[in-house]
């Protein structure tokens, strides 16, 4: 564990707490993509099934349980308690265009030919594009609540911090995980456009608005 990864994980944790706070404070899931949240549940369940078969550390196990349970809880909030505030008509990204290619990539690129390993690869590829329905929705509506942009920024920072973590691990431990690194770089790149608007507008005290 190095500081890049630790702060990356903390940023991921913070992003989920910000998301739960947003839903609680505004009593609404407006501006959130149900499809992205459902993809995160898929990602976490597919990857962290190994919580039953592998033990890395107490930290690792607790985080896995937290990510699975909090993502499921968010889905419940969106489809249960706050359903009336969810607007599926603007959440129109076609997720099958993500699921199919990711499944295919996992069948081609994996470290071992076993069910859990192919599922692990699938989750890595899917995580890299899971934010697309949310970003697509943002693009469509052209604006976002400030708190929602903080959520996205924390989520993007988590992925960005994993990149120096991999460089550090390559240098200090001589290990490299080409599947995670490739997908991680793609995932971080998807946030660049968002980060530009976040830094130039939201952090200057303005509302998140995209040019018409």
């Amino acid at each position: 564990m190095n500081l890049f990864r630790f702060f990356g994980d903390m940023s991921h944790l913070a992003s989920i707490l910000i998301l739960l706070y947003k839903i609680h404070a505004t009593r609404s899931v407006r501006g959130l993509s149900f499809k992205t949240q459902a993809l995160y549940v898929t990602v976490f369940v597919a990857r962290y099934l190994d919580v039953f078969t592998e033990f890395v550390s107490v930290y690792n196990t607790l985080m896995k349980i937290f990510f699975i349970s909090s993502s499921c809880f968010v889905l419940y909030l969106m489809k249960g308690r706050y359903r009336p505030t969810n607007d599926p008509s603007i959440d129109t990204f076609r997720v099958e265009y993500l699921l199919g290619p990711c499944a295919l990539l996992a069948l081609i690129f994996h470290y071992r030919w076993s069910f859990l390993e192919v599922l692990w690869s699938f989750s890595i590829f899917l995580e890299s594009v899971a934010i697309l329905p949310q970003l697509f929705m943002l693009q469509r509506t052209g604006e976002a609540e400030t708190i929602t942009t903080h959520y996205l920024a924390a989520l993007g920072a988590y992925r960005a911090l994993y990149i120096p973590n991999w460089i550090y691990r390559y240098w200090s431990e001589d290990v490299i995980d080409p599947i995670a690194v490739t997908a991680g770089i793609v995932q971080t790149a998807l946030y660049l456009d968002f980060f530009y608007v976040y830094f130039t507008k939201v952090l200057q005290g303005q509302k998140f608005e995209l040019p018409a």
């Binding site: 890395v56 550390s57 896995k64 490299i176 995670a180």
Partner: peptide, 10 residues
């Protein structure tokens, strides 16, 4: 170079 399966990250 460690190409071993290494799933200690989240």
């Amino acid at each position: 170079l460690g190409w071993d399966v290494w799933h200690d990250e989240l």
